[in-house]
């Protein structure tokens, strides 16, 4: 009985969290122009518009390109930084940890504004060069890559590295062939985190982007202020698609490790 009541509470919270998304998803398959408005039939027009409209297509493509590009940069900087810091003296390690913490705790508005003032206003780098935008997104996500690799470094067995040196590897070879492979799970989750942070960002984008370029966030915000119903309802379709992709992704990462576990059990 008690467990039943607890499940009811969880179900209620879940319902509140998911209802807006699900209602929007349901309406995205109709020809209605407002939620709760008149529905005269099912339609896939919103989905067709989403891919037929050039500005929407460019926006989606640009958002993905920016997310992957800045995440790659962030992964390179963050990984090198974490490895370097791990083997540094205590003082420089602490300094790096503290500086790394600044963008993590700072408000995105302040990060975006400060990068904008330095690069665009003071140094005069053109927004249209995309340089401030990419740097801004890298500043946002590199610290999280750093943070997802640092604990993996602590768990490393240092004797493996020394064994490689004893067996004749140069320090660089030992680092690339022994240390780096052990960090791959951390590097990968850092990269994924960087991609999601970039995809979700609004503030840094809006302060550093070229005026003709939009990511999903800035595009959606502008679209809610505009009055073009065709674009508004196409965005419902986009929201539904993203929701389905996320669900599929979550199901995949939950099912695949589960299968491996079963296989391991069979072996035993």
């Amino acid at each position: 009985m008690k467990k039943y009541l607890r499940l009811c509470w969880l179900a209620l919270v879940l319902a509140l969290m998911y209802l807006p998304i699900l209602i929007l998803a349901a309406y995205s398959f109709t020809d209605a122009t407002t939620v709760g408005g008149g529905v005269s039939g099912a339609s896939f027009d919103n989905y067709i518009n989403l891919f037929a409209n050039e500005s929407l297509r460019n926006m989606i493509f640009g958002t993905l390109l920016l997310a992957i590009g800045s995440a790659l940069l962030a992964t390179i900087f963050g990984t090198l930084g974490a490895i370097g810091a791990h083997y540094s003296k205590k003082l420089s390690k602490n300094l790096l940890n503290t500086a790394n913490q600044i963008p993590v705790v700072n408000a995105d508005v302040v990060t975006g504004f400060s990068v904008c003032v330095l690069l665009i206003i003071l140094l005069g780098i053109s927004k249209d060069s995309f340089i401030p935008l990419v740097i801004g997104h890298t500043v946002l996500s590199a610290p999280f890559v750093y943070l997802s690799i640092a604990p993996k470094l602590k768990q490393l067995d240092n004797s493996l590295y020394e064994a490689a040196l004893d067996l004749g590897a140069t320090p660089a070879q030992a680092l690339i062939k022994v240390v780096l492979p052990q960090l791959i799970p951390g590097i990968f989750s850092g990269f994924m985190l960087a991609v999601t942070l970039s995809l979700d960002d609004y503030f840094i984008t809006t302060y550093t982007k070229p005026s003709t370029f939009d990511t999903i966030s800035t595009y959606v915000v502008n679209a809610t202020k505009g009055s073009q119903t065709e674009i508004k309802t196409a965005l419902w379709a986009l929201s539904t698609l993203i929701f389905l992709i996320v669900v599929a992704f979550v199901v995949c990462i939950n099912v695949i490790p589960g299968r491996n576990k079963e296989k391991k059990d069979e072996k035993i």
Binding site: L96, T138, L175
Partner: peptide, 22 residues
């Protein structure tokens, strides 16, 4: 080759794009 030197690019990155803007 010193492993701790690997953090130099990231340290520079943080100084240039995190500390300098502030």
């Amino acid at each position: 080759f010193n492993r701790s030197q690997l953090c130099i690019p990231y340290a520079l990155f943080l100084i240039l794009f995190v500390i300098a803007p502030l």
